[in-house]
Design a protein around this nucleic acid. Structure first.
Lengths: 213, 213
DNA sequence: CGTCGATCTGAGCGGCGTCAAGATATCTTT
DNA sequence: AAAGATATCTTGACGCCGCTCAGATCGACG
């Protein structure tokens, strides 16, 4: 992003050194992912898409997994931004529901990306730093803090953490299952996938601490 | 299936025709899966494990995905059996919690198998028939019926179905996330993974229809 | 201008999923 | 029991994959 295409060689002549191949590779991977699905996401295909040789990516990523990590990283940032918007746009205890809906809808709008995000997490058996407690602006903190704002007891730490984890797991489960054909008739009956998602979230007793509000 | 090992050749001499290669392949795949993880599960490796050429499986399965489907199928049957046990062993409204715990614990005890089960489902965007409403003895029916037994209104069909779906999604989400290292300190604080699972399930407000009982 | 390090290419390794052709065992018919 | 049909397994090959390494090319810096 900082470096632009060098002009030592013209833009046409494909300079031997790419301006910012790392950036280009991640973008190409995202493009391929959303266009052709996870199965089409090979390192060679990404290199092809970026117009470089199959070995070039190895100067920017240790291996394929590290490239996917970078793609996943951007995914988490997109998700964080989406949830920040959702909270800002809602009011009162509606904010928690809005966060849940935003989470699931993001996953449904970018299913291949969401899959890459969680596959990377599962392989390392840990969530990326962007979603952790310590990270500022993380979705985890956003949910937990919103719970506190709307009546949860901030001194009951274990309860608060369990409630946050429970909400997260529930949203993730719904995110992965909402696309299944078995629920098609239910979505139709409720007037669309978004309504279905909202209805299931409601039935989950999400964010139990807010019930007393 | 029907055929047993023919005795024209002795059991030692590796007859040209395998007795029941289909069965042997599925078993080999399960063995490889649980021993080496999903990444080691190649068609060629399965054939190797079964002592047969790489092309042999194609006389029993259309492609690799169909083999994995067969493995997944067995997984769902194991899960159904596990949940049936869990319900039988519990009493009263404890049964619903027992079902949830059984589901998540199964997934945690067989993480690679559980992953294959859901990957197969996601690729087809539908749950396997064993888990559907129509199928007798399905986990879906078991959960829904147990809800009815413990006070849910069987005439409020939409509500009942939404509640069942919500429970399922929540359990699935927890099943996939319970292994993450971020929750390690929580598991320690609660005295183990099983306690952690039970605590999160409790916080999920699972099976809301039973709350009035 | 020359050197050095970073970047990219080309060739190549072994492994993968899959397929076609041929070999071999079993089943069926006579 | 012989013969043909059928199911099963092997061999060999194709193209794609992730990954490595030697060497070509370029930018920066002395």
């Amino acid at each position: 992003m900082v470096q632009v295409m060098r002009d030592a060689h013209s833009a046409e002549s494909r300079p031997y050194h790419h301006g910012d191949l790392r950036r280009a590779l991640v973008d190409a991977a995202r493009r391929l992912l959303e266009a052709e699905g996870p199965s089409a996401l090979s390192l060679r295909a990404v290199a092809r898409e970026a117009g470089v040789s199959p070995a070039a990516p190895y100067h920017h990523f240790k291996d394929k997994a590290e490239l996917l990590d970078a793609v996943a990283h951007e995914g988490w940032e997109m998700l964080n931004a989406r949830m920040a918007e959702a909270k800002a746009a809602a009011e009162g205890r509606q904010q928690l529901t809005a966060l849940g809906i935003a989470y699931v809808c993001f996953a449904r709008e970018h299913p291949a990306l969401y899959r890459v995000m969680y596959d990377a997490a599962r392989d390392k058996e840990m969530l990326p730093i962007e979603m952790e407690d310590g990270s500022d602006d993380s979705a985890y903190c956003r949910v937990r803090d919103t719970m506190i704002e709307h009546g949860a007891d901030p001194t009951a730490e274990t309860d608060l953490e369990l409630a946050t984890i429970a909400s997260w797991c529930a949203a993730h489960g719904l995110a992965e299952m909402a696309g299944f054909k078995q629920f098609e008739h239910m979505k139709d009956a409720l007037g669309g996938e978004q309504q279905f998602i909202a209805a299931v979230l409601q039935h989950m007793g999400l964010f139990p601490h807010t019930h007393r509000d």
